[in-house]
């Protein structure tokens, strides 16, 4: 049971480890576009999208920290 639980946690952690850099890269991508467009409407849209990605990244990092803590407790 513990082994199954551990494996399950490891799979979830792996998914988050792969997902977090994607959010960060999307943030950079939208910020770059926001800087490239001269009009305010485009800047606003891309900055809004960048902020969404940043929020996703922060949420994923919180979940990851939580799962890693659960995994370390399970290993004790």
């Amino acid at each position: 049971m513990r082994t199954r639980e551990r494996k399950d946690l490891e799979r979830k952690i792996e998914a988050l480890v792969i997902a977090i850099p994607r959010e960060s890269e999307s943030y950079d991508f939208y910020m770059k576009l926001a800087a490239e467009y001269p009009d305010e409407a485009s800047k606003e849209m891309f900055t809004f999208l960048a902020n969404q990605e940043q929020m996703h990244q922060e949420a994923l990092e919180r979940i990851l920290a939580n799962l890693e803590e659960k995994l370390s407790k399970l290993a004790r």
Binding site: E10, V17, I18
Partner: peptide, 10 residues
């Protein structure tokens, strides 16, 4: 760097 050296299965 990108994945902070986390030792996952993959």
């Amino acid at each position: 760097t990108r994945f902070q050296g986390r030792p996952t299965h993959i």
